[in-house]
Design a protein around this nucleic acid. Structure first.
Lengths: 246, 246
DNA sequence: TCAAAAGTGTTCGGTTTACACCCATGG
DNA sequence: CCATGGGTGTAAACCGAACACTTTTGA
């Protein structure tokens, strides 16, 4: 921006929109082969009793990224170690003047992903945080429906052309688990042999773990374990079958 | 966290970070087969004399989108009609605490695209606005180098899997012009016959214009004219050759 | 008649897709 | 020994890269 050009005779922030800046978090995880979102129950008006995305104010000396990371730990009721390892990325900023009826609040929204995360521990701000299967949450407070939809769209799209899927997996995972991520988020079935070849053919997507295979949890042949590789983009992309919408 | 949860006994924005919120614009166009960026010369400290992205404050009753559209007209020195038709989309938000040495400024960055745009007319804030070939701008003020690089990366990537390229073209254009967009932004040469087939095979990418072909401006067979279609995504994507970096 | 750009055709090789089949384990 | 999921093989279909060739214009 060009502050000085518009404020030639002074630089008083209060003469200009004194906005509050917040972060909102769309935290996704996969539990029991279902995509879940972390939501908090609002205890105050407006929207008292409604579900909302976790979030909070950006403090005077921190960036929005830092605020998002902090809120992720503070408000989600996940352990600090757990929260520190989640994949976190900026989604976009929501700034409609009346998105919060109380005052002017500009919110920088983030998407966070993690492997099968535990129930938030009670205590602190997180007392009302809870995982809900995506799609069952009903109407959220403020413009959080829009944010959540945007986040879901973005995640689905990024699975196609990035290695984002590993963010839903524990440090060591099987190709079956990785495939489950795609199938759960996209809601389609993928061909197992072809998926395997595709992933292994992409350099840096996954890296095999030495040692014996792991039990898959039940029946079936034990599967080999992999870790996330160092690649970030997927070339060529792993296109989802059929229509490509949400 | 929730606003109310941290401010149970009041809701005074001044008790929390009184941030200024601005928009910054990375405006791209193609002139003479070269990608150009619109920059303004700073007239005040800090960074006096340096190039910077155009931008300005978000006003109390407008959204960041509206602010970006307004600044596009006000500060770029383009006619209102021209500015109104540019493709405009949010890039991301930059919020490092010290990105502006004077005060806490959170900036929502936008990318704008347009067909071969005219030189900004002098007058008003836009007196110092000017097109520069991308890459020749040197070091920009504030964190605008980062923003500009991010914007360029994003545009290059979106050409692959969206119909964004038509935003660089006039209302009616030839396939040669469309191909020039890709070649200019990506800096690679594309096979003309294959490009043509690819574009025409994507439903909704372009729509043929009835009537006689147009002269290409010089030698060569007159080319058929097309308009942008109603499709927004490109499936399958138009992958750029070779390495996929910037 | 030549250069330049549009437009068409065709070949070749790799990739994706669909599906058959074997392997290892738990019940 | 059967169900279940992991892993390998393979043939057909599809797609994209490369390039030869024709067409239509301006000079």
């Amino acid at each position: 921006m060009n502050a000085a050009a518009q404020v030639p005779d002074g630089y008083d922030p209060y003469a200009f929109a004194p906005f509050a800046v917040t972060v909102d978090l769309a935290v996704f995880t996969i539990r029991d082969d279902l995509l879940h979102v972390l939501l908090v129950r609002r205890g105050e008006e407006p929207y008292k009793g409604a579900w909302a995305l976790p979030g909070g104010f950006v403090l005077p000396r921190e960036s929005a990224d830092q605020a998002a990371r902090r809120e992720l730990a503070e408000e989600t009721g996940l352990s600090d170690a757990t929260a520190a390892h989640l994949h976190l990325e900026q989604l976009r900023t929501y700034s409609e003047p009346d998105r919060d009826p109380r005052m002017r609040v500009v919110s920088v929204a983030y998407t966070a992903l993690g492997p099968g995360l535990p129930e938030p521990r009670g205590g602190g701000d997180a007392a009302h945080a809870q995982w809900l299967p995506y799609g069952t949450q009903g109407r959220l407070a403020f413009d959080h429906d829009t944010i959540l939809t945007d986040a879901h769209d973005r995640v689905g799209a990024k699975l196609e052309y990035t290695c984002l899927a590993t963010a839903f997996c524990p440090p060591e995972f099987t190709l079956g688990e990785l495939r489950q991520v795609y199938e759960t988020v996209w809601g389609v079935a993928l061909d197992r042999p072809n998926f395997r070849r595709k992933v292994l053919a992409t350099p840096g997507f996954v890296r095999p773990v030495e040692g014996p295979p792991r039990l898959t949890g039940g029946r079936g042949k034990p599967a080999a374990l992999y870790r996330a590789g160092d690649a970030t983009a997927l070339h060529p992309p792993l296109l989802r079958p059929e229509g490509h919408d949400t």
